[in-house]
Computed example of a mutant assay.
Amino acid sequence: MARRSPAVLASLALLAAVASSADSWLYEKFNTDGTVRTDYDASGQQVAMLNLDRSSGAGFNSKEQYLYGEFSIAMKLMPGNSAGTVSCFYLSSGDGDGHDEIDMEFMGNSSGQPVVLNTNVWANGDGKKEHQFDLWFDPSAAYHTYTIIWNPENIIFKVDGNVIRCFKRYSDLPYPSSKPMTLHATLWDGSYWATEKGKVPIDWSSAPFVVSYRSYSANACVSGGSCPAGSGSWMNKQPDDAEWGTVKWAESNYMRYNYCDDGWRFPRGLPAECSRS
Rank of each mutant, 00 (worst) to 15 (best):
L187K: 03
A220C: 10
G263D: 10
D100W: 06
G127P: 06
V222K: 13
N109P: 05
E273K: 11
N120G: 06
Y192A: 15
L91M: 09
R268Q: 12
V200E: 09
E64C: 13
M49E: 15
L67W: 00
S275T: 11
G44W: 00
D160I: 00
G94Q: 01
D262R: 08
V211Q: 10
F106D: 02
S275H: 07
P79R: 05
W244G: 04
G127I: 02
S62D: 13
R165T: 01
N151W: 02
M235A: 15
D203A: 11
T195E: 07
L173K: 04
G59N: 07
N258I: 10
I156R: 11
D172F: 12
P228E: 07
G98Y: 07
F106G: 04
Q45G: 02
Q65K: 14
V115H: 04
E243K: 09
L173N: 12
Y66S: 03
T246I: 04
T32N: 04
S110W: 01
A242C: 11
N120M: 07
N81D: 15
N81Q: 12
P201I: 10
S72A: 05
S206M: 14
H99I: 15
F89R: 08
G190E: 01
S252W: 03
F89C: 08
I155H: 08
R276G: 06
Y175T: 03
P174N: 11
A19V: 03
S177C: 03
F71E: 00
R3E: 14
D160E: 00
F133D: 02
A220G: 10
V115C: 05
E64P: 12
Y175K: 05
A7C: 08
N124C: 05
A272H: 13
G263V: 12
L183K: 09
P152C: 04
P201Y: 12
Y146C: 07
D53A: 02
I202W: 09
D103N: 08
